[in-house]
């Protein structure tokens, strides 16, 4: 499992997009998600699960993912999360 070394942000708070910020968590704390979203009532649970699964699939742990979403579709959010992790894990 990989961890990130520093805080990193990707994306925009724009319609159909999301600003995703990743921060290192303490070792053993696992993956945590914070979500604000214009569609939280309708898709909140789905989006949180999607972020968790995306982080797991990318092979990362001990990371907090903060998402400011304005109605991003799944593929856009996944891409933002992966890009943020890569940026946070980079040398």
């Amino acid at each position: 499992m990989k961890t990130i070394r520093k805080e990193a942000s990707v994306g925009f708070v724009e319609s159909n997009d999301a600003l995703v910020t990743v921060r290192p968590n303490a070792a053993g704390q696992g993956v945590t998600v914070g979500l604000t979203s214009s569609v939280k009532r309708q898709y909140g649970e789905h989006l949180e699960n999607l972020v968790l699964e995306t982080v797991k699939a990318a092979g990362y742990t001990d990371v907090h993912v903060e998402v400011q979403d304005k109605g991003a579709w799944d593929y856009a959010l996944q891409a933002r999360v992966v890009a943020a992790l890569n940026r946070g894990g980079a040398e």
Binding site: V39, R41, Q42, Y43, G44, E45, H46, W73, D74
Partner: peptide, 9 residues
């Protein structure tokens, strides 16, 4: 199919 079914508020 594109975005999933939303939860009812």
């Amino acid at each position: 199919r594109y975005i999933g079914k939303p939860k009812e508020i």
